[in-house]
Design a protein around this nucleic acid. Structure first.
Length: 737
DNA sequence: TCGCCAAGACTTTTT
DNA sequence: GTCTTGGCGA
């Protein structure tokens, strides 16, 4: 049984999986079987070493990774992992904090504030101090607070050498007070409190350190200081820690991640065993070579000799489009041709970009072409107003102290409570030293007899009405299931008729509410607290469920480079390879950030199994008008021998304006022609021929030639859609008369 | 108090 | 181009 576990592992993988106790550092290149090593290690511990799952904690960064790990291990050991702590850092910490909440400044039913909630608290704190929001942007103050927490610093431990640092520290202090008043924590607090609690409380530390005989960590290069310290405390008794990572794929520096934790690990555990996984099973040699060319420029890394045994494979296609629309058109047309010819499934393709904003054009192009796609993140189901409203209602019922949610829903739908009344409410709460929610509840239950009735003045009745509702839901919470409570709230406030005006958008909004209700259904047994925690900690990366119809056809995946980490696709398009986008302009002046942009590109390249397209546009629209850009500096690091150039020849700024459509006239001279000359006699189509295509109707061949990859490429003008460049063998063009 | 309209800001990546 | 914010009138 145990041997079967090792059968399909290479020597390095096997060494990692079967390593003895102690500290193991696995540095795993992309596609080298990192997940497999981790899952087999878990299975090995359980099967071969006889460690009960109960004694193990395994942490990941995403829910998806955690789920995948669990199902794969269950599959290997053929039984459930009873009692194991397996989940994301944030979920594991939340669990820890709920258990030990008596030691902490909040109750065990605390809610988790997301970025919007955080911002509103920061704004509130800044307004209290009358700090100019123009001079100190709330988002940036919040970022500073967040990074202090990631470094495990309390407000008073922060440096205060400049006015700005002083401002941040003051806002940070107040911000924490506000969180406490709301019985809430933010994402960073989960890690911060967990790490500090174990650090400062030996008894608790001992308890968990003894409980977990083995600690396993995925994506170790993405840990920040808080996470690193937390791990150290967790393994402080048995010193059995197994971490897997790759410095070259560290792309979360802006969130406090520090790939130097890999070095720190080696320093803190001098006896650790270090194992390198260098064989790539995913990509062709061309892709691996391109990736190495890009990443080898970076310094301060463990040098790796990534190799593949899959053979050279296809050349990488570099495409330069005239503008961003043409960029999208190239992607869509190329995919459409493969699909039309049934030479690939939609799910073989992914389109990756640096910023979410870039997804819009691509998405439009897909929609227009009628190609099935799914967009990871960004559409933000959880960002939709109606979804946030409903979540806020639930959060308020769970935790009446949650003032952020209270303020969100007190006017949903409008019930005559405006600024004046709110001020009175908050004033009364402040004076009484309780939360606004509690004042509302008191008004609701006692009515005119409440001490607050007179205090809030004229609109006391309006507040009391809402307070009554809130009180009823609160009482119903223990009797009703989540879904029943959900329905109760909707009917009590008349939410359906409020958001659904029977327009298309109205129906959409209602559908979203129903979707949330469906999600709640899965938590019927686990309860409201868990449901809300899940909503906060589940990312948009965990995409919405797909219909079975789509499942059969598959879909093209559209996602950011960040979201792409850990995934693989047969054919990958990386778009927007322009200076200012990738690398992003905000990284221009900081070498560390520039190195991270490079790693991001590296991550993108190494997602591709068979075919990689590197796409850029000569000019693109920013807020309205067009700007000309330069090709990304990273393109220079991809060896030209690995590449086929297509599309617009790179023009200087001066000449581009006169040749918008020059991409239909790829010059036969120059570098490309020298590589492999065009052989006109081989073309099946000739300029002037009339052709027909099922999707685009009738058109005329403008030009046809054999490209460097040996494929006949035709430029066609269709009456319906205008110019298209097609690969003849895929396009299914019928010659007419 | 609320809804509408105009002006302004704004785009990095996310648990 | 799009989303948010703030001002103003009903």
């Amino acid at each position: 049984m145990s041997n079967a576990l090792l059968d399909d592992l290479n020597p390095q993988q096997r060494q990692a999986v079967t390593a003895g106790d102690g500290q193991i550092l696995v540095l795993a290149g992309p596609g080298s079987g990192k997940t497999r090593v981790l899952t087999h290690r878990l299975a090995w511990l359980i099967e071969h070493e006889g460690i009960p799952a109960y004694d193990i904690i395994a942490v990941t960064f995403t829910n998806k990774a955690a789920r995948e790990m669990e199902s794969r291990v269950v599959n290997l050991v053929q039984r459930s992992l009873e009692g194991i702590w397996l989940g994301t850092f944030h979920a594991m910490c939340a669990r820890l904090l709920r258990r030990e909440s008596n030691l902490l400044p909040f109750k065990s039913n605390f809610v988790i504030f997301d970025e919007n909630d955080q911002q509103s608290l920061v704004k509130k704190a800044m307004r209290e101090f009358k700090i100019d929001e123009k001079a100190h942007r709330p988002a940036s103050v919040l970022a500073s607070i967040s990074s202090a927490k990631n470094d495990l610093l309390l407000p008073k431990e922060m440096p205060a050498r400049s006015y700005r640092e002083e401002v941040v520290s003051r806002v940070y202090t107040r911000y924490q007070e506000l969180l406490q008043i709301n019985n809430a924590v933010d994402f960073d607090d989960l890690l911060f409190y967990a790490a500090r609690m174990l650090q400062e409380n030996p008894a608790v530390r001992e308890k968990y350190a003894h409980r977990f005989r083995h600690v396993l960590v995925d994506e170790f290069q993405d840990t920040n200081l808080a996470q690193y310290e937390l791990l150290k405390h967790l393994c402080s008794a048995h010193k059995n820690i197994f971490v897997v990572g790759d410095e070259d794929q560290s792309i979360y520096r802006w969130r406090g991640a520090d790939y130097r934790n890999v070095l720190r690990f080696e320093k803190d555990f001098p006896g650790c065993e270090k194992i390198l996984l260098e064989q790539n099973y995913r990509s062709t040699q061309s892709i691996v070579d391109a990736a190495r060319g890009v990443i080898d420029v970076n310094r301060n890394r463990t040098p790796k000799h990534l190799f593949s045994e899959r053979g050279a494979g296809n050349k990488i296609v570099k495409f330069t489009a005239v503008d961003d629309h043409a960029e999208s058109a190239f992607v869509v047309d190329t995919i459409a041709q493969y699909l039309g010819a049934k030479k690939a499934k939609a799910s073989d393709f992914a389109v990756m970009y640096r910023t979410n904003a870039q997804s819009r054009l691509i998405e439009e192009a897909f929609m227009h072409a009628g190609l099935p796609y799914r967009l990871v993140g960004a559409t933000r189901f959880y960002g939709r107003r109606e979804v946030k409203d409903m979540i806020a209602f639930l959060r308020l019922v769970e935790n009446p102290a949650d003032e952020v949610s209270l303020l969100r829903v007190i006017g949903v739908p409008p019930r005559g409570i405006g600024d004046k009344t709110l001020m009175a409410l908050q004033g009364a709460a402040f004076q009484a030293g309780i939360s606004a929610g509690e004042v509302l509840l008191d008004l609701g239950s006692k009515g005119e007899a409440s001490p607050f009735w007179a205090q809030v003045g004229r609109s006391a009745a309006l507040l009391a009405d809402f307070g009554t509702l809130l009180g009823e839901w609160n009482a119903a919470k223990s009797q009703l299931s989540i879904v029943a409570l959900f329905d109760r709230i909707i009917s009590d406030i008349g939410y359906e008729s409020y958001i659904n005006d029977q327009s298309e958008e109205g129906n959409d909004r209602w559908d979203n509410v129903q979707e949330l209700r469906r999600l709640a259904y899965d938590f019927q047994e686990r309860g409201l607290t868990e449901f809300l925690q899940n909503l906060a900690l589940v990312s948009d990366q965990d995409t919405l469920p797909e219909t079975s119809e789509q499942e059969k056809i598959g879909w093209v995946t559209l996602l950011t480079l960040h979201a792409a980490k850990g995934l693989e696709f047969k054919q990958v398009f990386i778009i927007g390879l322009d200076e200012g986008i990738l690398p992003h302009s905000r990284s221009r002046d900081d070498p560390e950030e520039m190195a991270e942009e490079r790693r991001l590109f590296y991550v993108g390249i190494t997602r591709a199994k068979d075919q990689l397209y590197l796409v850029r546009a000569e000019r693109r629209s920013t807020f309205g008008d067009y700007d000309y850009g330069e090709p990304s500096r990273f393109l220079d690091d991809v060896d030209d021998n690995l590449v086929i150039h297509q599309g617009q020849r790179s023009h200087s700024r001066r000449s581009s304006y006169q040749s918008d459509f020059s991409w239909n006239r790829v010059p036969a001279s120059g570098r490309r022609a020298a590589l492999k000359p065009t052989i006109p006699s081989e073309t099946r189509y000739k300029a002037g021929m009339r052709v027909r295509n099922a999707a685009w109707g009738d058109g005329v061949i403008l030009e046809s030639r054999i490209e460097n990859d040996g494929e006949e490429t035709v430029d066609v003008h269709f009456a319906s859609v205008g110019f298209k460049r097609l690969i003849a063998s895929l396009a299914q063009l019928e010659v007419i008369q």
